[in-house]
């Protein structure tokens, strides 16, 4: 009896998994079919005159984890982290409202979706009443979008769409082409894959250097990694989700040579920052309140992220002039700011 029930449960789970994964790329495909063939992006207009208001030289884009239902549905821990980061980097313009788990950018509550009623019900419920099943549905739905971004067939289309969304948000936040502003992409969990995926197309329109700070990132070896000047990968020693990501993406295995991840690691652009006893989420997570060595973990994470941003800023300033933002693009003839290991990293990813 129990065996039968277990069998049916497994079968139902398998069918649900197959259905969900089969349907996952459809939104991207529909987005692409509606777009038609995109004209190549126009080259950034040369800056002939200084704008009346001084343009920001640094932009930060935060892409949250797979538990989000919209671009603004940051958890209280995320909001605390972002507020502290804003305070710590006051000159930077921060964008944290991009929903990275849909090619259209529409949050789960909007747009024509089969399950839009379900998402609305989930969103309407108070946080403590949200049933784990519904919360897990959001996680599962967004997890498949991470796979879409990592897929060699759909990834280029999905990542192009996401890069467009990020670009639009940056423009709305005051980014101007030709200014050579630095861009820092911060990705939590699956958001790191989305950021890495979008980096390939962002580098085509963004004329400044681009950095990725991955916080427990579940990242595939994606072409976008080649376009990032620096990748800081924060990994908790008790983070099993990040470890599962390494297992799931063979191109990240230590034996893999020639993958984008391996190239970033061997060139020294990729720096792994281990965090002792930190889990993927919860009180002991990256944004959690558990104390590690005198201060809460979230404060520690803020400090590390700010340090990464500062190092990147210094590296950009130290680079000789002649390249946008004083920093060479790493694709092709890579000249990474960390090629000489000035930051003391061992380059291990």
């Amino acid at each position: 009896m129990i065996e039968d029930a277990l069998g049916w449960l497994l079968l139902t789970g398998f069918i649900a998994f197959v259905l969900a994964s089969t349907l996952a790329p459809l939104e991207t495909l529909f987005w692409w079919s509606r777009q038609g063939r995109r004209e190549p992006a126009p080259a950034p207009a040369p800056v002939t005159a200084k704008p009346a208001v001084r343009a920001a030289t640094e932009f930060i884009v935060y892409l949250g984890g797979i538990d989000r239902i919209s671009g603004t549905s940051n958890s209280s821990r995320e909001r605390r982290f972002l507020a502290a980061l804003r305070e710590g980097v006051p000159d930077a313009v921060m964008v944290d409202s991009v929903f990275p788990y849909a090619a259209s950018g529409n949050p789960l509550l909007h747009g024509p979706r089969i399950f839009s009623r379900l998402w609305r019900a989930l969103d309407a419920a108070p946080a403590h009443q949200r049933r784990p099943l519904l919360a897990n549905l959001v996680n599962a739905r967004n997890f498949f979008q991470v796979l879409v971004s990592a897929d060699r067939r759909y990834g280029p289309v999905f990542n192009l769409a996401l890069a467009g969304l990020i670009e639009d948000s940056l423009r709305a936040a005051g980014w101007q082409p030709g200014g050579g502003a630095r861009l820092t992409l911060i990705g939590l969990s699956g958001g790191a894959q989305m950021a890495a995926g979008a980096a390939d197309d962002l580098a085509g329109v963004f004329d400044g250097p681009i950095q990725l700070i991955s916080i427990g990132g579940v990242i595939a070896s994606t072409p976008g990694l080649n376009r990032l000047a620096r990748i800081d990968h924060l990994v908790g020693s008790a983070d099993r989700v990040e470890a599962a990501g390494v297992l799931a993406f063979p191109a990240r295995w230590p034996l893999s040579r020639g993958s984008e991840w391996a190239l970033a690691r061997s060139s020294g652009r990729l720096k792994r920052i281990p965090l002792a006893n930190v889990t993927h989420n919860g009180p002991r997570g990256y944004f959690g309140g558990a104390h590690h060595g005198g201060r809460p973990q979230w404060e520690e994470t803020v400090a590390i992220v700010m340090d990464c941003i500062e190092r990147f800023e210094n590296a950009c300033a130290a680079e000789p002039a002649g390249s946008p933002g004083g920093f060479s693009r790493p694709d092709g003839s890579v000249r990474s700011s960390h090629g000489d290991r000035r930051d003391g990293s061992d380059g291990r990813g």
Binding site: V18, S21, A24, P25, L147, V148, D151, R153
Partner: peptide, 11 residues
């Protein structure tokens, strides 16, 4: 074969 439409593991 239709299941190969699934992202990432489809290939």
């Amino acid at each position: 074969s239709v299941l190969t439409v699934a992202p990432y593991y489809g290939e």
